[in-house]
Protein backbone atom coordinates (compact mmCIF):
# COMPACT_ATOMS: atom_id res chain seq x y z
CA UNK A 1 0.00 0.00 0.00
CA UNK A 2 2.89 2.36 0.77
CA UNK A 3 4.19 1.88 -2.77
CA UNK A 4 0.78 2.71 -4.21
CA UNK A 5 0.38 5.82 -2.08
CA UNK A 6 3.88 6.96 -3.04
CA UNK A 7 3.00 6.49 -6.70
CA UNK A 8 -0.33 8.31 -6.40
CA UNK A 9 1.33 11.23 -4.60
CA UNK A 10 4.04 11.38 -7.27
CA UNK A 11 1.42 11.55 -10.03
CA UNK A 12 -0.59 14.21 -8.19
CA UNK A 13 2.37 16.46 -7.54
CA UNK A 14 3.76 16.08 -11.07
CA UNK A 15 0.56 17.34 -12.66
CA UNK A 16 0.85 20.86 -13.98
CA UNK A 17 -2.65 21.64 -12.65
CA UNK A 18 -1.57 20.83 -9.07
CA UNK A 19 1.53 22.99 -9.34
CA UNK A 20 -0.45 25.89 -10.83
CA UNK A 21 -3.15 25.47 -8.17
CA UNK A 22 -0.70 25.62 -5.26
CA UNK A 23 0.96 28.77 -6.59
CA UNK A 24 -2.44 30.23 -7.58
CA UNK A 25 -3.86 29.56 -4.13
CA UNK A 26 -1.05 31.51 -2.48
CA UNK A 27 -1.45 34.41 -4.92
CA UNK A 28 -5.23 34.37 -4.46
CA UNK A 29 -4.82 34.62 -0.68
CA UNK A 30 -2.43 37.52 -1.18
CA UNK A 31 -5.05 39.19 -3.35
CA UNK A 32 -7.65 38.74 -0.60
CA UNK A 33 -5.18 40.27 1.89
CA UNK A 34 -4.82 43.22 -0.47
CA UNK A 35 -8.62 43.57 -0.79
CA UNK A 36 -9.12 43.41 2.97
CA UNK A 37 -6.56 46.17 3.39
CA UNK A 38 -7.95 48.29 0.59
CA UNK A 39 -11.66 47.75 1.32
CA UNK A 40 -11.96 46.91 5.04
CA UNK A 41 -15.68 47.74 4.98
CA UNK A 42 -16.34 44.84 2.63
CA UNK A 43 -13.89 42.42 4.19
CA UNK A 44 -12.45 43.09 7.62
CA UNK A 45 -9.13 41.64 8.78
CA UNK A 46 -11.06 39.43 11.17
CA UNK A 47 -13.40 37.97 8.54
CA UNK A 48 -10.56 37.50 6.09
CA UNK A 49 -8.54 35.60 8.68
CA UNK A 50 -11.47 33.53 9.95
CA UNK A 51 -12.08 32.37 6.37
CA UNK A 52 -8.41 31.64 5.68
CA UNK A 53 -8.36 34.47 3.17
CA UNK A 54 -11.13 32.76 1.17
CA UNK A 55 -8.87 29.84 0.27
CA UNK A 56 -11.71 27.34 0.75
CA UNK A 57 -13.31 28.51 -2.53
CA UNK A 58 -10.32 27.46 -4.62
CA UNK A 59 -9.61 24.40 -2.49
CA UNK A 60 -13.17 23.10 -2.92
CA UNK A 61 -13.10 23.49 -6.71
CA UNK A 62 -9.69 21.91 -7.04
CA UNK A 63 -10.44 18.97 -4.76
CA UNK A 64 -13.73 18.30 -6.56
CA UNK A 65 -11.85 18.41 -9.86
CA UNK A 66 -9.18 15.92 -8.84
CA UNK A 67 -11.65 13.63 -7.05
CA UNK A 68 -13.98 13.46 -10.04
CA UNK A 69 -11.15 12.72 -12.46
CA UNK A 70 -8.95 10.48 -10.33
CA UNK A 71 -10.33 7.32 -11.98
CA UNK A 72 -11.65 8.69 -15.28
CA UNK A 73 -8.25 10.15 -16.20
CA UNK A 74 -6.63 6.74 -15.68
CA UNK A 75 -9.23 5.29 -18.04
CA UNK A 76 -8.66 8.08 -20.55
CA UNK A 77 -4.86 7.63 -20.54
CA UNK A 78 -5.20 3.83 -20.67
CA UNK A 79 -3.10 3.59 -17.51
CA UNK A 80 -5.67 1.85 -15.32
CA UNK A 81 -4.72 -1.50 -16.77
CA UNK A 82 -1.03 -1.04 -15.99
CA UNK A 83 -1.98 -0.15 -12.41
CA UNK A 84 -3.99 -3.34 -12.12
CA UNK A 85 -1.70 -5.96 -13.58
CA UNK A 86 0.67 -5.85 -10.71
CA UNK A 87 0.59 -7.56 -7.34
CA UNK A 88 -1.98 -5.05 -6.09
CA UNK A 89 -5.70 -5.79 -6.02
CA UNK A 90 -8.50 -3.54 -7.30
CA UNK A 91 -9.39 -2.64 -3.71
CA UNK A 92 -5.81 -1.67 -2.89
CA UNK A 93 -5.62 0.56 -5.98
CA UNK A 94 -8.79 2.53 -5.23
CA UNK A 95 -8.03 2.66 -1.50
CA UNK A 96 -4.59 4.10 -2.18
CA UNK A 97 -6.17 6.77 -4.37
CA UNK A 98 -8.68 7.70 -1.67
CA UNK A 99 -5.98 7.81 1.03
CA UNK A 100 -3.78 10.00 -1.17
CA UNK A 101 -6.65 12.42 -1.85
CA UNK A 102 -7.55 12.54 1.83
CA UNK A 103 -3.93 13.10 2.87
CA UNK A 104 -3.50 15.80 0.23
CA UNK A 105 -6.67 17.55 1.42
CA UNK A 106 -5.58 17.42 5.07
CA UNK A 107 -2.11 18.74 4.19
CA UNK A 108 -3.73 21.44 2.06
CA UNK A 109 -5.92 22.54 4.98
CA UNK A 110 -3.02 22.45 7.44
CA UNK A 111 -0.66 24.27 5.06
CA UNK A 112 -3.29 26.79 4.15
CA UNK A 113 -4.12 27.44 7.78
CA UNK A 114 -0.45 28.04 8.56
CA UNK A 115 -0.17 30.46 5.64
CA UNK A 116 -3.28 32.26 6.93
CA UNK A 117 -1.66 32.57 10.35
CA UNK A 118 1.50 33.97 8.81
CA UNK A 119 -0.57 36.43 6.76
CA UNK A 120 -2.44 37.45 9.89
CA UNK A 121 0.80 38.20 11.74
CA UNK A 122 2.33 40.01 8.76
CA UNK A 123 -0.65 41.91 7.38
CA UNK A 124 -3.13 42.09 10.27
CA UNK A 125 -0.97 42.24 13.37
CA UNK A 126 -3.40 44.60 15.04
CA UNK A 127 -6.02 41.83 15.10
CA UNK A 128 -5.83 40.30 18.55
CA UNK A 129 -6.03 36.51 18.65
CA UNK A 130 -8.47 36.14 21.50
CA UNK A 131 -9.77 32.78 22.66
CA UNK A 132 -13.04 33.54 20.83
CA UNK A 133 -11.28 34.24 17.52
CA UNK A 134 -9.10 31.13 17.82
CA UNK A 135 -12.18 29.01 18.49
CA UNK A 136 -14.15 30.56 15.64
CA UNK A 137 -11.18 30.08 13.27
CA UNK A 138 -10.71 26.43 14.21
CA UNK A 139 -14.43 25.68 13.97
CA UNK A 140 -14.73 27.40 10.58
CA UNK A 141 -11.83 25.28 9.30
CA UNK A 142 -13.39 22.13 10.75
CA UNK A 143 -16.75 22.99 9.19
CA UNK A 144 -15.16 23.56 5.77
CA UNK A 145 -13.13 20.38 6.04
CA UNK A 146 -16.06 18.16 7.05
CA UNK A 147 -18.27 19.57 4.28
CA UNK A 148 -15.53 19.06 1.71
CA UNK A 149 -14.87 15.51 2.95
CA UNK A 150 -18.52 14.64 2.43
CA UNK A 151 -18.48 16.11 -1.08
CA UNK A 152 -15.24 14.27 -1.87
CA UNK A 153 -16.75 10.87 -1.05
CA UNK A 154 -19.73 11.64 -3.28
CA UNK A 155 -17.58 12.89 -6.15
CA UNK A 156 -15.19 9.91 -5.97
CA UNK A 157 -18.22 7.64 -6.30
CA UNK A 158 -19.34 9.65 -9.32
CA UNK A 159 -15.87 9.37 -10.82
CA UNK A 160 -15.91 5.57 -10.63
CA UNK A 161 -19.27 5.45 -12.40
CA UNK A 162 -18.30 7.62 -15.38
CA UNK A 163 -15.87 6.97 -18.21
CA UNK A 164 -15.22 10.53 -19.38
CA UNK A 165 -13.04 12.76 -17.21
CA UNK A 166 -14.57 15.95 -18.67
CA UNK A 167 -18.09 14.75 -17.88
CA UNK A 168 -17.05 13.70 -14.37
CA UNK A 169 -15.45 17.10 -13.78
CA UNK A 170 -18.48 18.98 -15.11
CA UNK A 171 -20.93 16.94 -13.03
CA UNK A 172 -18.66 17.35 -9.98
CA UNK A 173 -18.55 21.16 -10.23
CA UNK A 174 -22.21 21.58 -11.18
CA UNK A 175 -23.13 19.05 -8.50
CA UNK A 176 -21.37 21.20 -5.90
CA UNK A 177 -23.67 24.14 -6.63
CA UNK A 178 -26.77 21.96 -6.97
CA UNK A 179 -26.02 20.22 -3.66
CA UNK A 180 -25.65 23.58 -1.91
CA UNK A 181 -28.91 24.92 -3.35
CA UNK A 182 -30.74 21.66 -2.62
CA UNK A 183 -29.37 21.64 0.89
CA UNK A 184 -30.93 25.02 1.59
CA UNK A 185 -34.24 23.88 0.07
CA UNK A 186 -34.13 20.64 2.01
CA UNK A 187 -33.62 22.49 5.27
CA UNK A 188 -36.88 24.28 4.57
CA UNK A 189 -38.60 20.99 3.68
CA UNK A 190 -37.25 19.18 6.75
CA UNK A 191 -39.27 21.57 8.87
CA UNK A 192 -42.40 20.18 7.15
CA UNK A 193 -41.45 16.52 6.60
CA UNK A 194 -39.58 15.08 9.55
CA UNK A 195 -38.35 11.92 7.75
CA UNK A 196 -36.40 14.09 5.29
CA UNK A 197 -33.91 14.85 8.05
CA UNK A 198 -32.21 11.51 7.29
CA UNK A 199 -31.35 12.49 3.71
CA UNK A 200 -27.61 12.44 2.98
CA UNK A 201 -27.37 16.14 2.14
CA UNK A 202 -28.56 17.01 5.63
CA UNK A 203 -25.50 15.20 7.03
CA UNK A 204 -23.30 17.62 5.10
CA UNK A 205 -24.33 20.20 7.71
CA UNK A 206 -22.33 18.45 10.44
CA UNK A 207 -19.59 21.07 10.36
CA UNK A 208 -22.15 23.88 10.48
CA UNK A 209 -23.82 22.24 13.48
CA UNK A 210 -20.51 21.79 15.33
CA UNK A 211 -19.78 25.45 14.69
CA UNK A 212 -23.25 26.62 15.70
CA UNK A 213 -25.15 24.33 18.09
CA UNK A 214 -28.39 26.19 17.32
CA UNK A 215 -28.26 24.72 13.84
CA UNK A 216 -29.83 21.47 15.13
CA UNK A 217 -33.17 23.27 14.90
CA UNK A 218 -32.64 23.40 11.12
CA UNK A 219 -31.30 19.86 10.67
CA UNK A 220 -33.70 18.38 13.28
CA UNK A 221 -30.85 16.06 14.32
CA UNK A 222 -28.79 16.03 17.50
CA UNK A 223 -25.02 16.35 17.16
CA UNK A 224 -24.63 12.61 17.85
CA UNK A 225 -27.26 11.68 15.27
CA UNK A 226 -25.81 13.90 12.56
CA UNK A 227 -22.26 12.69 13.34
CA UNK A 228 -23.27 9.03 13.03
CA UNK A 229 -25.32 9.74 9.90
CA UNK A 230 -22.41 11.63 8.39
CA UNK A 231 -19.98 8.73 9.00
CA UNK A 232 -22.47 6.14 7.70
CA UNK A 233 -23.18 8.04 4.47
CA UNK A 234 -19.46 8.61 3.79
CA UNK A 235 -18.84 4.90 4.38
CA UNK A 236 -21.69 3.99 1.99
CA UNK A 237 -20.37 6.31 -0.75
CA UNK A 238 -16.83 4.93 -0.39
CA UNK A 239 -18.01 1.29 -0.36
CA UNK A 240 -20.14 1.95 -3.45
CA UNK A 241 -17.18 3.65 -5.15
CA UNK A 242 -14.94 0.64 -4.40
CA UNK A 243 -17.64 -1.77 -5.58
CA UNK A 244 -18.24 0.19 -8.78
CA UNK A 245 -14.49 0.41 -9.46
CA UNK A 246 -14.02 -3.34 -8.96
CA UNK A 247 -16.97 -4.15 -11.22
CA UNK A 248 -15.94 -1.99 -14.17
CA UNK A 249 -14.06 -3.76 -16.91
CA UNK A 250 -10.65 -2.49 -18.01
Amino acid sequence: MRTLIRQESYKLMKQRSTQIFLIGLFLFQLLVVFCSKKYPKFLSDKDAFLNNYMAIILITFFIIAICSTVITKERQFGTLRSLLYRKFSYIQIITSKIITLLTFTILLFVGNSLISLVFKFVFANKLELTHKIWKAWLLTNLNNFLTLLFLMSLVVLLGTLLNSSNLALMIGIIGYFVINVFNQMLLALIAKFDWLKWNPLNMMNLGEQIQSHGFHQMTQLSLTQISIGYAIYIAIFIILAIYSFCKKSV
Partner: peptide
Protein backbone atom coordinates in the same frame (compact mmCIF):
# COMPACT_ATOMS: atom_id res chain seq x y z
CA UNK B 1 -9.13 -10.74 -6.49
CA UNK B 2 -5.76 -12.42 -6.02
CA UNK B 3 -2.88 -10.52 -7.56
CA UNK B 4 -0.11 -11.48 -5.15
CA UNK B 5 1.42 -14.07 -7.56
CA UNK B 6 1.95 -11.22 -10.04
CA UNK B 7 4.66 -9.81 -7.79
CA UNK B 8 7.41 -10.71 -10.23
CA UNK B 9 5.46 -10.35 -13.46
CA UNK B 10 5.91 -7.54 -15.97
CA UNK B 11 3.47 -6.93 -18.79
CA UNK B 12 2.53 -4.85 -21.77
CA UNK B 13 -1.01 -5.46 -22.97
CA UNK B 14 -2.41 -4.07 -26.24
CA UNK B 15 -0.86 -0.58 -25.99
CA UNK B 16 1.23 1.15 -23.35
CA UNK B 17 -0.86 3.35 -21.05
CA UNK B 18 1.24 6.43 -20.31
CA UNK B 19 0.68 9.60 -18.30
CA UNK B 20 1.06 12.43 -20.87
CA UNK B 21 2.26 14.92 -18.28
CA UNK B 22 5.23 12.77 -17.24
Amino acid sequence: RQHQPLQSVGALIEYPGLYPYL
